[in-house]
Write a protein that binds this DNA or RNA. Structure first.
Lengths: 195, 195
DNA sequence: GTCTATAGAAAGATAGAC
DNA sequence: GTCTATCTTTCTATAGAC
């Protein structure tokens, strides 16, 4: 494609995208503090220097990863929230995808795994303020819609944390159907008008 | 007190306790990865070497801190769980103590802030298996008591995470009375027999 | 019982060649 | 556009003096 390819493919857009995807997976797996730029760059097939060239710093890279994660939600989708029984729809997706060995809900995982770092937490806060809250609140009606949407988000985060990250036996080894019913009812009550 | 005090007070039990308290506060504030043994030791008035002397390693120190945190719960107390309206009791304590500037629920904070580190997560898993789950499940009756207790714990964790650590505006700036009512109802439904 | 000094590894970021 | 090489800092853990 390009004129020559001495060290690598020499395609700015492709390199940038490769770094971004590598970083997404790595931050989901190990969190902001748990992975270094060398490792991210290595998986993408480039050197650590390229991260700074394209994203300015590790923080800059993280900010783009978080923004992309919030732009493509995998559980709190508009379809799920707008369905007849949004709680059940969300619960079904959440239970299925927090089962051991599953593709794993990387978006929320990045947040849960990285929030302990103050710089990462600040970036998450900012992106959350800009995107996620507005999306959910706009889809939930009734009194105290913002608070109810916020609580629903907290329930989703707490469930994933305890089941997937900590592996709390009561949640990690429970019958999926039971979990789905209980979690679905809880979320439906929060997302519908009745308190 | 002791025969002499050339470098420091030279009291093994007191030094150990000072390190433990310093570590508890530091891990709550910054998580396992966010704080070094130098800092912990410095606050306790000793050098980093003492940490390894008394606890073997940073991991050993963390394990003791997590164990002590689970032995002295500040929200999921037996009193709260056994009361007439356990959900409301828990919610009231949780909302009050996740307000900005409050003493802050360090036990769960240590867990939320440290779980991204694989070694810390393993320690938390083990301590959780030994202590917390049994305490809660023993106090909750009815069908699927374990699952309901686990979900309640997840709700508490998620709420604290989103309100206190991320500072989600919908939760961080909400009317405490509204939050308390919604969260209390949610927890009461989980902890009582009705699904 | 506590210290100073240091080993040894790994991190983020930058300079400058090609 | 990408590389190698290096600067600087920070970390856990250990050796050995007092």
């Amino acid at each position: 494609m390009t004129k020559q390819d001495s060290p690598r493919s020499r395609n700015a857009a492709a390199t940038r995208e490769a770094i971004l995807q590598s970083a997404f997976a790595a931050f989901a797996q190990s969190g902001y503090d748990g992975v270094g730029v060398r490792e991210i760059a290595g998986t993408a097939g480039v050197t650590a220097m390229m991260v700074n060239r394209y994203f300015g710093s590790k923080e800059g890279l993280f900010a783009e990863v978080v923004a992309s994660a919030m732009n493509a939600p995998s559980v709190l989708t508009r379809e799920a929230i707008g369905s007849n029984s949004p709680g059940r729809a969300i619960a079904a997706a959440l239970v299925a995808r927090t089962t051991r060995g599953e593709p794993v809900l990387d978006g929320m995982r990045i947040i849960l795994n990285s929030a302990s770092n103050p710089r990462a937490a600040e970036i998450i806060r900012e992106q959350m303020r800009l995107r996620h809250h507005a999306t959910v609140a706009a889809t939930v009606g009734g009194d105290h819609a913002g608070e109810r949407a916020g609580l629903a988000l907290a329930v989703v985060a707490g469930f994933q944390f305890m089941r997937q990250m900590i592996g709390l036996p009561a949640l990690a080894q429970a019958d999926p159907a039971v979990l789905e019913a209980m979690l679905g009812t809880t979320l439906d009550r929060l997302l519908s008008d009745g308190a």
